[in-house]
Design a protein around this nucleic acid. Structure first.
Lengths: 239, 239
DNA sequence: GGAAGAAAGATGCGTAACGCAACTAACTAT
DNA sequence: ATAGTTAGTTGCGTTACGCATCTTTCTTCC
């Protein structure tokens, strides 16, 4: 950070009119396909158009950018306390008609029931396969989020955050498969879950409506609700 | 990005005095240990103190943040055209005494000969193990860069960017080992390099000073000078 | 100039991980 | 009671990995 010419008004950084925003890609899994949240823009360019939940950084209010993203997530999408991680920064003159801007993009994942429970009216869930036509560079941001989710899913416990509080192994496997877009071998999957041991069984067996053997319920171990479990070797797909 | 109250001065974003900077962790490998570049601060808080090469975002000048990081790297450290990737954003009120700030951190890797050739006077190379006492939150930023480098090295061609243009497999293996801090099995390493095939042999054999069989020279294939080669399974360490 | 030394590189094999098919288990519906 | 459906397990062939050993190709030193 070099010497900076003080502006005519005497205010520091006057020469740096950088528009600072955050945008959140809020992902969920519904009916076997990935979806992300869009909300109508309240003002500014593209007013009324569906876009990623986002907002200006409020230095007086936001402790840091994570807090800013959490505020945006809460206010715009009604979601709180879910998995949230920094994705990347998108920047440049062209991405926002108002001028040179910078958006710190985050991605969040949440179970669809939790999401639906508090999703504001006007918000929509768009299928991740319909990725076009968003304002600004939001297409690119969503693309990056999906790419990150897919790659990280192959070697971490991230997809478990797309599940409800408790879930069965077949359910979890279906989530992994939906995210990665490939079938996973049942035995290999269960072996890997055992080896990684980020899950703990919930006493009591899921007695569900189907005419078949009930499945064991599991939940994320305490430690792995905040931190992901990673594996070197990765999860293998196929059959 | 919500509706924003126009400020009293009529200037947009007046209420967002966010200090926007970039900082670059420029890493190299020398004498078998990782080192990063520090340069004396030219002005502002901590003037004269060694810190990461960094600077304000210059919207008039920088096409985007990558261009900004490249400019900083060029001007402050004399380095151009090397591996450069976005790391993370560090933000908040406390990290800079001037106020609420945001630094987009980047990490770059370069071969030490290339680095030394154009490193400005005053700059220093600090051993990555001596990680303390830096101004701002630069300790944390360097820590994040090292962590990223180590983790990414285990499943990508990234360490090859710490090598000169051409290199031998034993040299490359030594780089991987230095970065990851663990020995790698020679046969496994060579098998993996073969399988990933991001290297191509250079015709002509390295004739070096040692009293032993000369080694084949290799270089990164064209495609992988810009993009990394990734592997699912990861590189295994041990013996 | 022939033997010793040293590092590059290849080979062979025991072991562990993975993929797949087939099996058993536990439930519901008829 | 039996058929159907999904949960979960077992066994085994195949692949990948780790390690020791062997061969290759150079320099050095008598």
């Amino acid at each position: 950070m070099p010497n900076e010419t003080k502006s005519k008004t005497g205010r520091k950084d006057e020469r740096d009119p950088v528009i600072c925003t955050v945008d959140v890609v809020l992902l969920t899994l519904e009916a076997g396909s990935l979806r992300f949240v869009l909300v109508p823009r309240e003002a500014g360019p593209f007013k009324g158009v569906s876009a990623l939940p986002g907002g200006f950084v409020h230095p007086e209010e936001d402790r840091d950018l994570r807090a800013c993203a959490e505020r945006v997530l809460k206010v715009k999408a009604g979601v709180e306390g879910q998995w949230l991680e920094q994705l990347s920064v998108f920047s440049g003159k062209a991405r926002d008609p108002r001028g040179w801007s910078l958006s710190v993009a985050w991605f969040a994942v949440v179970h669809s029931d939790t999401l639906r429970a508090t999703l504001p009216a006007g918000a929509q869930l768009r299928d991740a396969r319909d990725l076009s036509g968003l304002p600004f560079d939001h297409d690119e941001i969503v693309g990056a989020a999906l790419s990150r989710l897919r790659s990280k899913s192959s070697y971490s416990s991230l997809p478990a955050h797309l599940c409800p509080e408790t879930f069965t192994l077949p359910q979890l496997q279906a989530v992994y498969e939906a995210v990665m877009g490939e079938p996973i071998n049942k035995v290999s999957f269960r072996r890997k879950m055992e080896e990684l041991s980020f899950l703990e069984p919930v006493e009591g067996v899921r007695t569900h409506g189907g005419a078949h053997r009930p499945a064991q319920l599991w939940r994320l171990k305490e430690d792995f609700r905040i931190h992901l479990k990673l594996t070197d070797r990765g999860l293998n797909t196929g059959g």
